[in-house]
Simulated scan of single mutants.
Amino acid sequence: MPIVVDIDVMLARRKMSVGELADRVGITPANLAVLKNGRAKAVRFATLAALCEALACQPGDLLRWEPEGAAAPSAPAAVAES
């Protein structure tokens, strides 16, 4: 899926467990794991907002787009000036 979920990154930065985040957001640890592991088909804006509030971050810190089949994000190509 081209949308990558980086909740693990924010959890590590905040030194927070999945269980603690689930409690703060008001969802089950199992549902948070589904989202965290990229298996969710959708996320409600209310859930995304609660995640951002609990982790003190922006939605773009949790979700990013990656082209299909891309192994890692690539740097923008340099533009040659004539």
Rank of each mutant, 00 (worst) to 15 (best):
residue 13 R to W: 02
residue 53 E to C: 03
residue 75 A to E: 02
residue 6 D to N: 04
residue 7 I to E: 01
residue 9 V to Y: 00
residue 17 S to N: 02
residue 30 A to L: 14
residue 13 R to I: 10
residue 67 P to S: 08
residue 58 Q to V: 06
residue 28 T to A: 07
residue 68 E to Y: 12
residue 15 K to I: 01
residue 52 C to K: 15
residue 45 F to D: 06
residue 55 L to A: 07
residue 22 A to R: 11
residue 4 V to D: 01
residue 11 L to F: 02
residue 46 A to I: 07
residue 25 V to D: 08
residue 51 L to W: 09
residue 42 A to E: 06
residue 45 F to A: 13
residue 19 G to L: 14
residue 39 R to S: 01
residue 54 A to M: 13
residue 55 L to C: 07
residue 19 G to Q: 11
residue 62 L to N: 13
residue 41 K to A: 05
residue 72 A to L: 09
residue 80 A to N: 14
residue 34 V to E: 02
residue 12 A to C: 05
residue 33 A to P: 07
residue 39 R to A: 01
residue 8 D to I: 00
residue 5 V to N: 03
residue 70 A to Q: 15
residue 75 A to Y: 00
residue 32 L to H: 12
residue 19 G to D: 05
residue 63 L to S: 12
residue 61 D to M: 03
residue 41 K to P: 04
residue 62 L to K: 14
residue 10 M to I: 07
residue 65 W to T: 13
residue 20 E to L: 08
residue 21 L to N: 02
residue 49 A to W: 08
residue 52 C to Q: 13
residue 47 T to S: 07
residue 32 L to Y: 11
residue 60 G to L: 12
residue 9 V to H: 00
residue 39 R to Y: 06
residue 74 S to W: 04
residue 39 R to D: 00
residue 40 A to L: 05
residue 57 C to I: 09
residue 28 T to E: 05
residue 38 G to W: 13
residue 38 G to M: 13
residue 3 I to R: 07
residue 3 I to F: 03
residue 19 G to C: 11
residue 7 I to W: 00
residue 4 V to Q: 01
residue 25 V to W: 04
residue 47 T to C: 06
residue 27 I to K: 08
residue 25 V to P: 03
residue 9 V to Q: 02
residue 28 T to I: 14
residue 27 I to W: 09
residue 40 A to H: 10
residue 23 D to H: 12
residue 27 I to E: 08
residue 5 V to F: 04
residue 17 S to L: 07
residue 59 P to N: 12
residue 71 A to P: 02
residue 64 R to M: 09
residue 75 A to S: 04
residue 4 V to C: 04
residue 58 Q to I: 03
residue 12 A to E: 00
residue 40 A to F: 09
residue 1 M to I: 14
residue 58 Q to F: 01
residue 79 V to C: 11
residue 65 W to G: 06
residue 47 T to H: 06
residue 57 C to S: 11
residue 2 P to V: 05
residue 34 V to P: 06
residue 71 A to E: 09
residue 65 W to R: 11
residue 62 L to H: 12
residue 34 V to C: 04
residue 43 V to K: 09
residue 11 L to C: 03
residue 53 E to T: 10
residue 42 A to D: 06
residue 11 L to D: 01
residue 71 A to D: 08
residue 75 A to W: 02
residue 39 R to L: 02
residue 29 P to V: 15
residue 48 L to V: 14
residue 33 A to H: 09
residue 80 A to G: 15
residue 58 Q to L: 04
residue 22 A to I: 10
residue 19 G to H: 13
residue 52 C to I: 10
residue 72 A to F: 11
residue 63 L to I: 14
residue 6 D to W: 03
residue 2 P to C: 06
residue 18 V to W: 01
residue 66 E to K: 14
residue 43 V to S: 08
residue 15 K to P: 01
residue 69 G to E: 03
residue 71 A to W: 00
residue 18 V to N: 00
residue 59 P to A: 09
residue 20 E to M: 12
residue 49 A to D: 06
residue 55 L to G: 04
residue 81 E to I: 15
residue 1 M to D: 05
residue 62 L to D: 10
residue 64 R to N: 07
residue 55 L to D: 05
residue 63 L to Q: 12
